[in-house]
Simulated assay, not measured.
Amino acid sequence: MTALSRISANSNTEHGPETATGRARTRAPRPGAIAAWLLGVAALVVAMVVVGGITRLTESGLSITEWKPVTGAIPPLGRADWQAEFELYQRTGEYRTVTGPAGMDLAAFKFIYLWEWSHRLLGRLIGLVFAVPLALFWLRGAIPEGYKPRLLALLALGGLQGAFGWFMVRSGLSVEMTDVSHFWLSIHLLTALVTLAGLVWTALDLRRLASTGDNAPARLTGPAVAVGAVLVVQLVLGAWVAGLNAGLASDSWPLMQGRVVPEVDWSRGAFFAATHDPFFIHFLHRWWAWIAAAALIVLARRAKPLNPAVARTIHVAVGTQILLGIATVLTGVSLWIAVAHQLVGALLVASFAWGAHVIGRRDQAIPLATRPVTGPARAAANP
């Protein structure tokens, strides 16, 4: 063999396997990296909920009257553009009935417009932060087996969130309306919170896969479903309180108007009162909170033997949320206290997802050495 041949052979021996290994490493599943990415997206969804809360509390949601998914990312750049947007807003019932008679000028309109624009821009950013890395992970073969449908479902939920947001805005644009539909508001908010819970749950499954190699997803147990249902009722009531401005129905606690049960208009029936009367909805949200708190504490107690950290997190989130809810009432819906209330509500949903995930792995939390040996393993151990 010539010297040149030996050099070529050595080069192939040294670099060939390394290159193949590098290609294998590039295409190997990366559950840890995907979990970190999903938790980052979850943090952005929490920020989205906060900005959405500010948008609602400042009555900014109807300031942008058109749906422009791409060009809408650019705000008005000159006075003529601002004036054109203001004129579109002046056609709404909200302006004609509420903000116009109150003396809203162009400067005040810019304030509410920029909050709504920021809310929509953050939604676009979340879409990009999810879709682009998802495509890259997919093309590189980095998504573990069984997770592609889940990730596509989360992407679809994000798309629905944007669509529901527009349906919500459109519901308030007629001259007869002075606000968005509180039903669409609750759908919009719940979709965001379900997406948040799904992101956290999937990230936890992937973190376990990365640390233990166990690719079996956590189960959604009966107790978790029950607690989740109680929590959903409270979240819907909270959205209706926001949509109907029912937080202003009382500035005292625990009584409303000096009574336990406020005066309610029952003339159109109990169902209408429970879905439209701001005083009764405020009352329901105020007292259902204790049922939700009890349910979450039960969940925390079930999770504590398996993961004390999640139990502490749920307890802190529940206590903080109740205190902020009371403070929101007593301050007459102070902007930043109400925003903090909504922030902790989103964090409470994330902590619920964590706790439900923990108890969904109860059987898998038993140390391997103490598990009963069954099936082929038992037969092998006892020939």
Results as ranks from 00 to 15, higher is better:
V261P: 02
V261D: 10
V261G: 07
V261R: 05
P262A: 05
E263H: 14
E263D: 15
V264C: 01
W266M: 08
W266V: 06
W266L: 08
S267D: 06
R268Y: 07
G269L: 09
A270L: 13
F271Q: 08
F271G: 09
F271S: 13
F272H: 15
F272Y: 15
A274K: 04
A274L: 12
A274P: 06
A274H: 11
T275E: 10
T275N: 08
H276C: 06
H276E: 15
D277F: 02
F279H: 09
I281Q: 01
F283V: 03
L284N: 01
L284K: 01
R286C: 00
W287N: 12
W287D: 11
W287K: 08
W290I: 05
W290A: 10
I291C: 05
A292C: 10
A293R: 00
A293C: 10
A294F: 09
A294T: 07
A295P: 03
A295F: 04
L296S: 00
I297D: 02
V298C: 09
V298N: 03
V298L: 10
V298M: 09
L299E: 04
A300T: 05
R301N: 14
R302Y: 14
A303S: 14
A303M: 11
K304P: 01
K304D: 08
P305L: 13
P305T: 07
L306Q: 12
L306I: 09
N307F: 06
P308C: 14
P308W: 13
P308K: 14
V310C: 01
R312K: 15
R312N: 14
R312E: 10
